[in-house]
């Protein structure tokens, strides 16, 4: 049984409860009063992909629309500008809830596969946990080539002037492509992350038990 199916079974389609227990800041969802200020405050102006604004996502959670919410690309569109948090009359940490939902969907493996923010987030995370340092060159290259070789070359050519400028200014080291710089205690970083994950699981278990 997939992680997704396991959770669906566990919460017997009480999706709000699932969100409250499993999603970071999910316990705030119930406090929304549907005023719409978050949605109206979003500077992305709901570009394609923003199917559901935050307050609607919250209502969908309450209405038990599990599948629709978790597979939605909407949460991935958040740019963390915090306008919604600042204005929310109920002080909901909307930005964090959006990220929490995105993260949860990702963990369950139901997040939209081709969503660019998600791809970037994955690339970024994998890039930085490996060595404890962000390798910007590898990150950019990875991003350029995520849609295939020819598209990657096209992307690279489009950005070549920027790259040359950076090279000239000694802000880009081509040798970073091979290994690159690392932090002093790579194992320590990995241990830290492992511990963090354990703590997170424990917290969630406690929350579920409560």
């Amino acid at each position: 049984m997939s992680a997704n199916a396991q959770m669906a079974t566990k919460y017997k389609n009480n999706f709000l409860k699932e969100v409250e227990e499993q999603v970071e800041m999910g316990e705030w969802v119930k406090m929304c009063m549907q005023c719409g200020v978050c949605s109206g405050s979003c500077p992305t102006n709901f570009h394609p992909g923003w199917e559901h604004p935050p307050q609607e996502i919250f209502m969908m959670i309450r209405a038990g629309k599990r599948e629709e919410v978790l597979t939605s690309p909407s949460m991935w569109m958040c740019t963390s500008c915090y306008n919604c948090i600042v204005r929310c009359p109920r002080k909901l940490p909307i930005t964090h809830i959006m990220h929490g939902l995105a993260n949860y969907a990702h963990r369950l493996g139901v997040a939209p596969k081709m969503q660019p923010t998600r791809s970037f987030a994955k690339l970024f995370w994998n890039n930085c946990v490996k060595t404890g340092r962000v390798n910007e060159l590898k990150l950019s290259v990875g991003l350029y080539f995520k849609d295939g070789l020819s598209q990657g070359i096209r992307n690279g050519m489009a950005m070549k002037d920027v790259a040359l400028g950076l090279l000239k200014a000694k802000r880009l080291n081509p040798f970073e492509l091979f290994g690159g710089h690392k932090c002093k205690d790579q194992n320590g970083i990995h241990a830290m992350l492992k511990k963090a994950r354990e703590l997170e699981e424990k917290r969630k278990a406690l929350k579920a038990a409560a």
Binding site: K30, M31, M59, R62, R90
Partner: peptide, 11 residues
């Protein structure tokens, strides 16, 4: 608000 905190759902 207290009811919402207690988990009462408003639709």
């Amino acid at each position: 608000r207290s009811a919402q905190e207690k988990g009462v759902i408003f639709s």
